[in-house]
């Protein structure tokens, strides 16, 4: 068999496939995981009330801290840019070490911190911080809100006891959508 006959045989097999599957443009309704998570984090802030001593009247900022290896790139900043919550501008602060973190009512703990989660929890004990993370079983391990993915959708669990201990008030609307961890 000559080379060209071999080639034509391949083309004969592949042609219908190739012609069918090369589209001119691609579109998708899926969104990057962390773009959606960033939107959730912003939304959580709207449904949580902090103890009255968390903010001073003079505070004009609401900081969201990201602890550990930032998984959002710039998506979290993009999500909160120009937004306010309770008349405070929302800003994002990144830190790799708990010691560097300024007062933050919301702290996103990146997956990179999974191995010292217990240490972090211990240091945060008693502070009114809304902790959010996608570390496996984060809420079960004492965090406030833990993300998980179910059939490509983002879901979250809330550890009500942990929230109450620190004095956070979580709105019933948020609790209704969450899976509750006792």
């Amino acid at each position: 068999m000559t080379m060209s006959r071999k080639f034509s045989r391949i083309m004969l097999i592949m042609a219908p496939l190739l012609s069918a599957v090369f589209p001119l443009s691609a579109s998708a309704e899926e969104r990057p995981e962390y773009e959606v998570k960033a939107a959730f984090v912003y939304n959580f802030a709207k449904f949580v009330e902090w103890p009255t001593d968390t903010f001073k009247d003079s505070d004009t900022l609401l900081r969201i801290c990201v602890l550990g290896k930032n998984p959002f790139d710039t998506l979290l900043e993009a999500a909160v840019a120009g937004k306010t919550i309770a008349a405070r501008s929302v800003v994002v602060v990144y830190a790799t070490d708990l010691g560097q973190v300024p007062p933050c009512p919301i702290m996103y703990i990146a997956r990179s911190e999974a191995h010292n989660l217990e240490e972090i929890q211990k240091q945060l004990e008693g502070t009114a911080i809304l902790t959010v993370s996608d570390i496996d079983d984060f809420a079960e391990r004492g965090g406030t809100i833990g993300f998980f993915v179910e059939d490509k959708n983002i879901r979250f669990k809330i550890n009500v006891d942990a929230a109450e201990e620190t004095g956070l008030q979580i709105s019933s609307k948020l609790l209704r959508l969450a899976r509750i961890v006792e």
């Binding site: 959606v36 939107a39 959730f40 999500a79 959708n153």
Partner: peptide, 14 residues
């Protein structure tokens, strides 16, 4: 996405 309700966010595939 931040304009979406929580319910809508939960329906977005990632």
């Amino acid at each position: 996405l931040t304009e979406l309700s929580l319910e809508d966010l939960m329906n977005i595939e990632v």
